[in-house]
Amino acid sequence: MATPSVLFVCVHNAGRSQMAAGFLAHLAGEAVEVRSAGSAPADQVNPAAVEAMAEVGIDISAQSPKILTPDAVESSTVVVTMGCGDACPVFPGVSYRDWALEDPAGRGVDAVRPIRDEIRARVQALIAELVPTTA
């Protein structure tokens, strides 16, 4: 079976999608290909998101926001959108999920922690769905 790939998309690719990609890469390892992008990428990853992830032992400080491309969407098994609205292209055969999450932009780490924890729970559920456990 081919390795599933997940693309996390939000507007700036600076907070929610970067945290989700960080959790998926950390928790699923090589079992899932991880990508993230934004419809209007920011200049840098949100420092509060970097700090919140560092608190749980995941370093996303080297990541940089990337522009969303139709190729990235079309080549993904699952596309998880987080408030990118109509900017996300839709292709047949791609599974879409929309995660309604607060935008951490411009907020301090105290406000980002609950968003981070919600993302972790959703990523864990996604892994359980995509990666069959072997007994």
Rank of each mutant, 00 (worst) to 15 (best):
P92R: 15
N46V: 03
A54Q: 15
A31N: 09
V123C: 12
V6L: 12
E102N: 13
V45A: 09
S61P: 00
T81V: 04
V45D: 02
V56Y: 03
E129I: 10
V11P: 08
V50K: 10
L68S: 09
C88W: 00
P65R: 10
D43M: 13
V34Y: 09
A54E: 09
G106E: 01
I67D: 11
P92Q: 13
S75Y: 09
T134L: 15
A72N: 11
M82E: 09
T77P: 02
G57P: 08
A52Y: 11
V32K: 13
A105S: 14
Q44C: 04
V45Y: 02
K66I: 05
V78S: 12
Q63L: 15
P70R: 13
V131M: 08
P104R: 14
A87R: 11
Q63D: 14
M53I: 09
V50W: 03
F23I: 10
Q18A: 14
G83D: 08
G22E: 05
V9G: 05
R122Q: 15
P41R: 01
A2W: 07
F8C: 12
V56Q: 05
P41W: 07
D43N: 13
D86H: 12
A72C: 07
P89C: 09
P65E: 12
E129S: 15
L68H: 06
L27S: 05
I127A: 12
S64R: 14
G108M: 08
V73K: 07
A42Y: 04
C10H: 03
P114I: 12
S61D: 03
D103P: 12
N13S: 11
M53C: 07
T69Y: 07
R35Q: 15
D110P: 00
S76P: 05
K66G: 04
S75T: 15
A105L: 11
L130F: 07
E102T: 11
I119K: 11
S76H: 06
T3I: 15
R107M: 12
F23Y: 15
A40I: 07
A25G: 15
A100W: 01
K66Y: 03
R97V: 03
G22V: 01
S17Q: 04
M19P: 11
R113S: 10
M53W: 12
G38Q: 10
A37H: 04
R107A: 12
E30M: 00
R120F: 02
L24S: 05
R97P: 00
M82Q: 05
A49R: 12
R113T: 09
V94N: 06
V6K: 06
G106Q: 05
S36D: 02
V90I: 15
A111V: 02
F23G: 06
L24N: 07
I115G: 08
M82V: 10
F8K: 14
A128N: 12
D110S: 11
N46H: 14
P132C: 10
G22C: 07
V94T: 11
T69P: 12
C10Y: 01
T133W: 09
M82N: 08
S39E: 02
A2G: 01
E102R: 15
P4I: 08
A37P: 04
H26P: 01
Q124P: 00
M53Y: 04
H12W: 00
S64Y: 05
D71E: 14
L24M: 13
G57C: 03
S76V: 05
D86N: 13
V73R: 08
S75F: 05
V11E: 06
V80G: 03
V6H: 08
L68P: 11
R97F: 02
A62F: 02
A31R: 13
A128P: 03
F91M: 13
V131Q: 01
